[in-house]
Structure formats: C-alpha cells, structure tokens
Simulated assay, not measured.
Amino acid sequence: MSDKMAIGEVSKPRFEFRTFGQDFSAPAARMARLSVPVPEKVWERHSKEIYILSRTNDVNNTKIRDGKMDIKTYVQTIDGLEQWNPLMKGEFPISAAQLETEVFPAFKVDMPTLTQETYTLDEFLCIINSHPDLQAVNVVKHRFGYMVNNTICEYGEVLFNGAKICTINSESTEIEDIKKTLTEVGLNQVENINYLQAIKRVIGMINQPLAN
C-alpha cells in the first residue's frame, strides 16, 4: 500500500523527476489542470538560496537557505528517477569540526586550512570563493505547487546568478505514480536534470545544454 503524499511534510525517501530549460508552458498548464486542490501555502512560493558547486562532486547537493546548511546525498536511480536522502543539516556559525568531518568531505575536494573554531556564513563563503574547485551560486526560486496522481509537483521560474530558466518536477515514494504523471503532462521523453547538473550547465562547469 502506497503512502499518502503531503506537500511540505516528511515522508519516506522520495524518487524525483526534474528538468530544466527555457519553456515548459505546455506541461505546466496540464499540471495545473490535472492537480487536485493543494494547501494555499504552496500555491506560490519565493525563496533565495545559495548552492555550493564542486567540480569533483555530483552526488551531494549542498545549499544554504535561511542561514542554514542543507546537504542531500544521491542514493540511486531507478527507471530514470533519482532518489536523494538528507545527509546533514547545520546552522551558522558552524564549527570547524563539522566543516572538516561533514561539509568538505561532501564536496570531495582538498580540505582548506581552518584557523578558527567557528565560522559565520560570510566567513564560510569566503573559504568557498577562494577554493579553486568550489563556487557559490545565488539561486532565486519562484515556485508554483501542485499535486497530480498523488505526486508532489511544481513548476518554477529560477535565477542562477541572474540567468533565468524554468524547472518542472514530480516526486513521490511511488515510482509508477511519477511515470503516470510524466506521461499525462507530456514530460516522459524529457531528460531528468537535477539542480546540481542544471546549475553546472548554466555556469559552464559542465559543457551540456539543458532540456530545451
């Protein structure tokens, strides 16, 4: 028996389809039409985040939102859908010990020399910006939430360091529900691109185009 999905609530680890490009107006319109009613708090959301990109890491997704660090790690891909699990959450000021044992190992880069016991967000970003294999990217999200076939969906307009693109996704604990949704909204032949990959393509860290 499948779990009942609820937007904004913790569930079993979910599988996700997401993609990025210039125009998803048609599938976004179908997603809105097919959606059941969703809580008003997810009708439309705005957020500003900082993603930390590493040239040597594609399996740990590190971002900072509301002054807190959030790291998710890639688990597996089944039928083209990716599963990610929480790895750590941290608050600033953050200890040097946590940077050494959890944060920089997630980046898979050489450990910089740390001379303080704790670091503020600005001090941490200075370390990131001075590291040759790391780059902080400012991400602004304007998202619209839906629920189709018991999958949590969204269409979003996002800025990566000011570059405007679109994203659309469907996620659930149940793979078949996502597949059904992708077919119904017209995304079943579109490449699955996660945030790490999309940002790297936009900033030139990966030489590949987006989905359209």
Rank of each mutant, 00 (worst) to 15 (best):
V38L: 03
R143H: 04
F107T: 03
E154K: 11
N150P: 06
L114N: 06
F160W: 06
M147R: 11
G162R: 11
I78T: 15
K141R: 13
A136G: 09
P86A: 12
L134H: 07
K141L: 05
Y74H: 15
Y155I: 02
S130P: 02
H131K: 11
E49A: 10
F104D: 00
M31I: 05
H46S: 14
V137T: 12
L99F: 09
N60H: 12
L125Y: 00
I165W: 04
I78L: 15
K41T: 01
N138A: 14
T115R: 15
D66F: 11
L81Y: 04
D122H: 09
G162A: 14
Y74S: 14
K48I: 03
L87H: 03
T115E: 10
Q83F: 05
S35H: 05
K68I: 05
L114T: 10
F107W: 11
S54K: 12
F124S: 00
Q116R: 15
T101I: 07
V158W: 12
R65S: 10
T62N: 08
E157C: 13
G67H: 07
T167C: 06
Q98F: 15
S54L: 08
V42D: 04
L87T: 04
N61V: 02
A32S: 12
P39I: 03
S47P: 02
I64V: 15
M111I: 00
L99C: 01
E102T: 11
T113L: 13
F124G: 02
T113H: 12
